[in-house]
Write a protein that binds this DNA or RNA. Structure first.
Lengths: 337, 337
DNA sequence: TCCTGTTTTGCATACCTGTGCAAAGCTACG
DNA sequence: CGTAGCTTTGCACAGGTATGCAAAACAGGA
């Protein structure tokens, strides 16, 4: 087990100074001859620069922290994978943190603190909020933060979401055009901006068309809660359901069909939100609003990179629009194929 | 934006030396009085030890690298989340790497190299192999590796899998007991030990009972491939299908029901492997072999921790047994509720 | 009180690289 | 050949912590 080979070893073998080696590997200017000698010696010795020492002195770790609440909803693994790939190809690495289910808000701060300890260059929070105190701390440490799929009103943090309000509105217009009049809504968690915006856009568009919601229940992005909510709305005799995300929509469809013996969309139309891959499966054929994961992730990555490279860059709010994908789980307006 | 506060600042304020501060925070022995003064000064200044500097000198980063091929199959996000939680609670952090889809084997080595650069203390490879050269390099660097859900014959690396051979055998015995005679198999990727073992256990148990496979097709853990494989087997008139994992089994069930107009299990019994949460959903009710994720992750984490703490610890192979979960997608033997 | 054995403490150094600074080397031009 | 301007190079140090070593402090027993 050989000891680690350092820049000094390479320098000695190449007949140059350690600084020369450093310059070659950090891309600073050096003569062609020096570069050649150093590269050769490094190759022979199997030298690789020590990332820790480099980070210690430059203050940049080339690590981005990624906080994620839960990976049940397939939307998040998908996003996570894309984030990881994107950062990797930009020369960054991803440090993953999962929030414990107990006391998530409380723990989040501790977790972010640990990230700061590791001197991450940037932070992505997926569906997770950040206390003002901690946000200030990140700002003070010069660490840019991007909120992914979650807004935080009044904060100066960069945010990337889909156009949730517009998405909710699209669903409302579509259901009305299809002739539905008793429309129910199983909302996402109202503690999240994402959930609130979808609900709000939906309700406002209904009102604008002169209709009111026949019933609304909170689904909290939870399987069981969604099913109970569906039961209550069905008792209330609705003929269409807008569900806060696909994941809950699947549960609702299964429940309606197999437990309650109803047909979708003949008895009840169901519309979801996200367009996860499973929505296209033959067993569900879920009509849903697409969240363009790819573009959302790209936007978030771009925003973070911009801020990491230019500390004075402004943090903005980005809303990415996504289409309503028509499939079989909701009745279609007359004359629409 | 205040400059970083170091151990020297704390030392000055507490009236002790920097070493004293270091000792307090690294848990070495110190007098009660010193501890009190240091803690107090640190609190007042908001001091936090610099992880990079610490890692640089100790050679241990308290980071574990995690390589994952793809997160489509919900088995992996689930495992990933548990890994992350487990390591977090042990004071380790998780660095995530995803393999690019192109040239995965080639890229894997580069990725692992990058992890070594970051001086990770340990490595978890989920469904990913490691070239012998690189395995040797990890060993030389004293970095323990655990293969998760993937074996590698002839390697000295620690491995945690489920009892794939036994699982395949259980399925065979169950199908025979239920009276199936024309049995088909859509295998997992035969380049992976996991896929091979399931197939092999299945076939051997069939033979032991005096039967032969009516047909076998490679599914490669891929949605589309699985569907095409199912078509070919159905042409071949099978009345039962053992599918290499749940993810493919869902695709197959959808295809049989909605495209081919067949009933499951009346026309064809379908059995999967993994028991992901979705298998219990009313839309599928998939009979499947459970891979006990929780226990598998715990075993992998324990194995890694053991090796990280005691470098001379032996790397072993662990197979975790899982039951066949009976649901509605496969016909049951007479007299079995 | 003196001596021995045990803690505690501070000093100095190591870990490994990036970078400011000044000296040295080189090119080109008059 | 001299000099100005530019590039390359080496020196020395910084970044923040852990730790071996020796000195100091302390506890206890005779």
């Amino acid at each position: 087990m050989s000891a680690r080979v350092t820049a000094f070893d390479v320098a000695a073998r190449a007949g140059v100074s350690q600084s020369a080696v450093s310059r070659v590997f950090s891309g600073a200017s050096a003569s062609g001859e020096t570069v050649r000698k150093v590269r050769e010696a490094a190759e022979a010795l199997g030298y690789r620069p020590n990332v820790l020492a480099r980070s210690l002195i430059t203050g940049r770790s080339r690590i981005v922290g990624m906080v994620v609440a839960y990976l049940d909803n397939p939307f998040y693994p998908d996003a996570l994978e894309r984030f990881s790939r994107a950062f990797q190809s930009e020369g960054y690495h991803t440090m993953l943190f999962t929030l414990p289910e107990s006391a998530p808000e409380r723990e989040c701060d501790r977790i972010v603190q640990q990230m700061l300890d590791h001197q991450v260059d940037g932070l992505v929070l997926a569906s997770v909020g950040l206390s003002d105190a901690l946000a200030a701390r990140c700002a003070a440490a010069g660490i840019p933060v991007v909120l992914f799929n979650r807004g935080q009103s009044g904060s100066a943090l960069a945010q990337v979401t889909s156009a949730n309000r517009a998405g909710g509105a699209k669903v409302a217009e579509f259901l009305i055009a299809a002739g539905h009049r008793r429309i129910g809504h199983i909302s996402g968690w109202q503690g999240s901006s994402t959930g609130r915006d979808r609900t709000q856009g939906f309700i406002e568009a209904l009102r604008a068309a002169g209709w009111e919601l026949a019933g609304i229940e909170e689904g909290r992005y939870d399987h069981g809660a969604a099913i109970r909510a569906a039961d209550r709305l069905i008792e209330n005799d609705v003929d269409a359901l807008f569900v806060g995300n696909d994941h809950m929509a699947f549960a609702v469809m299964d429940h309606l069909r197999f437990t309650r013996g109803l047909s979708v969309p003949e008895d009840v139309s169901v519309i979801g939100y996200d367009d996860v891959p499973m929505a296209a499966w033959a067993g569900y054929e879920l009509t849903t609003v697409r969240q363009p994961v790819g573009r959302m992730v790209s936007a978030a990555v771009a925003a973070l990179l911009r801020q990491m490279e230019d500390m004075s860059a402004q943090a903005g709010i980005e809303e990415i629009d996504g289409p309503l994908i028509l499939r079989g789980s909701a009745r279609r307006p007359e004359g629409l194929t």
